[in-house]
Amino acid sequence: MNDHTYKITAQDNILFVDASGPFDFDTMLQYKSETLEAIEKLKHEPWGCIACFHGSGVFSPEAEEELVLLTRERMRKNMAALATVIQDSRQADIQQMQLSRVYESCNTKYHIFSDVKAAKTWLANYLKKQPN
């Protein structure tokens, strides 16, 4: 049984994702579909994503591959940067390694935080510097 849940919301030019893992392939496909739908209204100007992961949000190898594809698609749809927050995780080091590998393979501007407020501040400052 999987204990995964996620919520996707968009506000102004920021997509917020609040997720608890673990993340298997089926969950990732559903998440990918809902994310692509949510960014349709953001894609007309540079936007950013704040993804908050709670608990053991380790990705299966197949889910990690899908996250690479999703990240590339988000970048094609004008995503400027990602701020990732890892909280309450006994596997934070593994999660950080996986996410860094995904984002770096996509050449995505990102930063990983343990605090939501710091993530929001960094992303807001980064987005202010982007040409519209």
Rank of each mutant, 00 (worst) to 15 (best):
N125A: 13
N107T: 06
N125L: 13
Q95W: 00
L70S: 07
R76Y: 03
K117S: 14
Q130T: 08
K41P: 02
L69G: 06
L42I: 07
A124D: 15
L82I: 12
C52A: 11
L69R: 14
E64I: 03
C49N: 11
H44I: 01
Q130C: 11
H111G: 00
A63F: 08
K32H: 11
V58N: 10
E73H: 04
R101E: 13
S89I: 04
A51H: 12
S114T: 15
E37L: 14
A118R: 10
Q98G: 10
E73K: 13
Q96P: 00
T71R: 04
R76H: 11
Q87R: 15
K41Y: 05
L42V: 03
A92E: 13
C49Q: 09
G55M: 08
L42Q: 04
S89D: 02
P46V: 06
L69W: 03
E62W: 04
L127A: 10
L67V: 04
S89T: 05
V116G: 00
R101I: 00
V102S: 01
E45R: 15
K117F: 04
S100T: 15
G57R: 02
D115C: 11
H44T: 10
A51Y: 08
T108V: 13
S114V: 13
Q87V: 09
H54W: 10
K32F: 12
A63H: 09
R74K: 15
L42S: 04
R72F: 12
I112R: 06
Q91F: 08
R90E: 13
G55F: 08
Y126K: 09
W47M: 04
K129A: 15
V102W: 01
F113A: 03
S56V: 07
A118G: 00
Q96C: 08
R90N: 10
L99M: 13
K117H: 11
I39S: 07
C49F: 01
Q98H: 06
D115L: 06
L67Q: 12
A51Q: 11
Q87G: 03
N125C: 07
A80Q: 01
G55R: 05
T71L: 02
Q130N: 05
E40L: 09
K117T: 12
R74I: 03
D115A: 09
V58K: 08
S33H: 12
Q95H: 05
R76L: 10
